[in-house]
Design a protein around this nucleic acid. Structure first.
Lengths: 345, 345
DNA sequence: GTGAAAGCGCTAACAA
DNA sequence: TTGTTAGCGCTTTCAC
């Protein structure tokens, strides 16, 4: 009857048998070691090692212990922005002994629903989600059925969910103000098909800045919208900007990746940055500082977004929890891709 | 006794009660709908909707159904390489209705152990891991205790685990051959403190190429090793390369991110790429093609690495499974950062 | 300080 | 075709 340390994992029953105690004594050693007699405790611990005891999470959850698993449903974990959000989530949860069940929705509402459904079945501790489906009622119901939900990078709308967002209006305003101060009077806003809310709010922020400078927003702002999810920016984007009349002297891009492509695109047609055209990114991803020219961009506290969301989720377990809305401020990082507008020189 | 659709989730018992059938009929509707009378089935399904029925994963696992959760333990999910590996894993598992529990080890063996321990407690279906702890016995035992383990980007060593790797010797050789063909006779190899095995193997590959060209490997290869995990490459790296005598005319970098920094570093001291110095990256990350100069690099099938690993893991469930070793081939992507060696012109 | 026993929600074998 | 039942491994009273 010798147990092999590399055998299949034993349960509490095996431990109890080997230690010559009852199951509940084993349980006590695990959860309230203090109340067990030292000698007994030692015997039990020895037995645990002998039979290769491993706690059974599912059984504990079934019994009512909160799950150690938290869901993270983001747009695309291979996208540096969301990867960073996810790291924030992971790091916050990890010291609570929690694990992150992460999934990508790829802009597909059906995929999002599927993921959320699977997560609910796992009876996870909660879910952090950057929803792509504008209809939040599903999430609201998920929450009501007992799975706490926290929104990241998305306003709570009419739900009573916790959410963590960045002030996109401010972000748009900061970018526009910077360009206006450099003398730019005609600015292109290159946005994708995604993240409708953010895109709109940033535009609103630009309008604010333009209006404050006494400009006619409709003339000063050139809206260039195109589907820019696939790895490559469609070449027409650059064309549209360069052929517009009057031609803009600056571009605000919806994110740094797009800005990178714009930099390349402009270079390839001989437009110099920042001499002929200023370029502003958004996000301040790691590579932004390392490009040449290094990229002026609106920095978002990406990691903190995730960290704060995880924080809120953990807080949901507390009895005195109240649903909260956390709002971060973006900040402008001026680097070498923006300069005084050509006409002004 | 009216149930509210937005109420707390009900269980099979509630469904049975509402539908006026027994629990096992409900179970049958779920797992073998065909054997249930249509009328009964309909009633049960209606009841499920009414009480907001959601399957309870943990209970199923406890009962012996394989878990839908797979662990993914990688170095850093915010690192584009591992993020991509993880996407491969995710995409392969997702159509099997599986979920990915992903964690970062951050080069910390203790963290790796902790993660693996937690995953084992969750009774996951299996674990895919890029181990940083060179001692694989823990993984071997994990596997023996009943949690299948697949290694990614790491040789199986003396274990009998499944593993997926890329031929690093070939990668090093391809890079060196390319540079040799361009007339370079002195090449720096800039490697970090990480991933000992890969680094060594690539060096071996370079040696092969050098030897085949009739060169004295020790003189032709300048080894520059330094800790390069933090976001910035230490400036000394560039110095060491430029001050070496004879000065190398080409650099092979351990990955594209390092190559990016080298590009910047060389530019800042007025060394032109590729005119004065050729630079080769490794990995072919998305941005490699978009840099200026665009980066010559050794492409690895990163996504496929994860995809194949997940594939192997799923296969472990089959009764006829045999442990396998999958080896991918890297390939050289020649772009604009390499050119004929200066002396030769 | 320790043990006996009741379930958590589910599956599957067997009975009706 | 449907129902009964015995656990899966654990936590948690409550008795001893």
């Amino acid at each position: 009857m010798v147990e092999d340390s590399s055998a299949r994992r034993g349960g509490m029953r095996d431990v109890a048998r080997v230690a010559g105690v009852s199951i509940s004594t084993v349980a006590n050693v695990l959860s309230r070691p203090a109340i067990v007699a030292p000698e007994t405790r030692r015997r039990v611990q020895e037995a645990m090692a002998r039979v290769g005891y491993v706690r059974n999470g599912p059984a504990r959850v079934l019994r009512g212990v909160p799950s150690a698993i938290v869901g993270s449903v983001l747009l695309d974990l291979a996208n540096p922005f969301y990867a960073q959000v996810n790291r924030g989530i992971e790091d916050r949860l990890t010291d609570q002994g929690c694990l992150v069940l992460a999934g990508s929705t790829d802009l597909d509402a059906a995929k999002e629903r599927r993921l959320l459904g699977l997560l609910e079945e796992q009876a996870v501790r909660g879910v952090i989600v950057a929803p792509i489906d504008p209809d939040l009622t599903r999430l609201q119901e998920l929450s009501r059925r007992g799975t706490p939900v926290v929104l990241v990078d998305h306003p709570r709308g009419r739900t009573d969910l916790c959410c963590v967002t960045v002030d996109d209006v401010l972000g748009g305003r900061l970018a526009a103000e910077h360009l206006l101060a450099l003398g730019h009077r005609r600015i292109a806003y290159l946005s994708g098909s995604v993240n409708a809310v953010s895109v709109k709010q940033r535009r609103a922020g630009m309008f604010q800045a333009l209006a404050a400078a006494g400009l006619d927003s409709d003339k000063a702002l050139l809206d260039v919208r195109m589907p820019i999810e696939p790895p490559e920016l469609p070449p027409q984007a650059i064309e549209m900007i360069l052929n517009a009349s009057p031609r803009p002297t600056a571009v605000l891009c919806v994110n740094d990746t797009v800005a990178l492509d714009v930099l390349r695109g402009l270079e390839s047609v001989g437009v110099r940055v920042p001499a002929d055209m200023s370029v502003v990114g958004y996000d301040d991803l790691q590579f932004a500082a390392r490009l040449s020219p290094s990229l002026t961009t609106v920095a978002q506290p990406i990691y903190q977004l995730g960290y704060a969301a995880a924080d809120l989720l953990l807080d949901e377990a507390r009895s005195d929890h109240t649903h909260r809305e956390v709002l971060f401020q973006p900040s402008l990082v001026v680097r070498a891709s923006t300069a005084v507008a050509p006409a002004d020189r």
